[in-house]
Design a protein around this nucleic acid. Structure first.
Lengths: 146, 146
DNA sequence: ATAAAACCTACAAACTAAGTAGGGTATTAG
DNA sequence: CTAATACCCTACTTAGTTTGTAGGTTTTAT
């Protein structure tokens, strides 16, 4: 399950993506708009900034803004950053790999092989969906198929 | 990430599947064979029994045994039982559904739609893999492809 | 200068996972 | 019958993570 932190990050990012005209958006504006604790959101935006997704401006008139185009921000990146590994086991994680203590040979471990499949199927979606897919409007006549 | 409980369950189940000849296997035998705390494993086996996957025999000469064929026990069932929801959001969970508080219409919520895709891709694997796939031996000449 | 805003560190509370303790109860060999 | 065996059950403890809070520091526009 995705953590609240992750969901808040998506909410904040979609808000920023929908308000790209404004130069910098206040933490408080996002927080009250999306019903998130100001201080908690502060930490999240800071993480997104350190990851190179957001930029910020200090002082009066400051705030946060997208530093990349929505099409360049994949869901996978956000989820890895705030939620942790996408894989179900450390031994099949691309970004948080750890060897199993009990498993001698990954090439012949059935669990390993199956969990790789799960990982790849998941990545097939979240590596190819971006922030722009989250803010896209679905029309009544042509609902998004999946 | 899968919890230890879930991993222990898979270890225990594979052990039982590989020892189907013996009528009933002692908790202690599985525990020491797979390096799991006896008491912790006891709870796990009990859950598996209540879910109709294992049977047990009390008294001297008792123990646990598989009540279903390995081909009938899907990974999805075990994961849901011990790890919880497979979906990333409550609003896309088939077995643990909960409505989002903030989302008015699931049909047009982009996050909902994408998370449904993730869920379905994951289920495509774990609903079709069973305990028998975990105990299958991969030969050196013909390694399992994926 | 001063007010406004991001930035930073540390901590507290709430929740969940993991493991422990101790006994109760059913079964069966002898 | 009876005692050993081993499942069954409840409650508790410990450890770790998530979520949220507090208070101060730095930067910048006016």
């Amino acid at each position: 399950m995705l953590s609240k932190k992750t969901k808040y990050a998506f909410h904040a990012l979609t808000y920023l993506a929908e308000n790209q005209d404004k130069r910098a958006v206040l933490i408080q504006e996002i927080a009250s708009s999306k019903n998130i604790s100001h201080k908690f959101l502060e930490n999240i935006l800071l993480e997104l900034k350190k990851a190179g997704i957001l930029g910020s401006k200090k002082g009066k008139g400051g705030g946060y803004y997208l530093i990349k185009k929505p099409e360049e921000i994949t869901l996978a990146k956000i989820i890895r950053l705030l939620n942790g590994p996408i894989a179900w086991l450390p031994c099949v994680s691309l970004n948080y790999y750890e060897k199993c203590s009990d498993c001698a040979d990954e090439a012949t471990c059935n669990m390993h092989i199956i969990m790789c499949q799960v990982r790849d199927q998941t990545l097939a979606v979240v590596e190819n969906k971006t922030l722009s897919d989250l803010i896209a409007k679905t029309t009544d006549k042509q609902p998004l198929k999946y």
